[in-house]
């Protein structure tokens, strides 16, 4: 099962990197989302996989032997929430920049670093 997750994470990173190298803002962000999902899977796998065991038990229940690790789930939840916020901002920004700069090609975005400038 760990192997399956590792392969999945690896494929996500591979596909994500491919998308990110397209040089356009939108595919870049999609690729980034894939890679951040891969990172979440890494955390999930690093908490050790357990089958059919609850992460939380009621207050007076003493069956402590049979619980799964709740910490990775909490970490992933945090990471997902943060990743969601960042992605929404990045999408807004890329839309804004498309509207203002009229391009989604990274290579054509030279406002901040004009090519012609050089040694003046």
């Amino acid at each position: 099962m760990e192997l399956l997750l590792a392969i999945l994470a690896g494929s996500l990173v591979a596909a994500g990197s491919y998308l990110m190298m397209s040089g356009k803002t939108l595919p870049y962000l999609f690729g980034l989302t894939m890679i951040s999902n891969a990172a979440n899977l890494i955390i999930f796998a690093s908490g050790r996989l357990t089958f059919g065991k609850p992460p939380l038990v009621p207050e007076h229940d003493k069956t402590i032997a049979d619980v799964s690790n709740a910490l990775p789930q909490a970490l992933i939840l945090t990471a997902i929430v943060i990743g969601f916020g960042l992605l929404v901002f990045a999408l807004t920004l890329s839309y804004r920049s498309y509207y203002v700069l009229k391009t989604i090609e990274m290579d054509d975005m030279r406002e901040a670093e004009p090519i012609a400038e050089g040694n003046s």
Partner: peptide
């Protein structure tokens, strides 16, 4: 906006690497 796109793009990769 131009600077921000590059800043955001590259820093998001660092973020993902940090969590991984």
């Amino acid at each position: 906006l131009d600077g921000a796109i590059k800043y955001v793009g590259l820093n998001l990769i660092a973020t993902v690497a940090f969590i991984a």
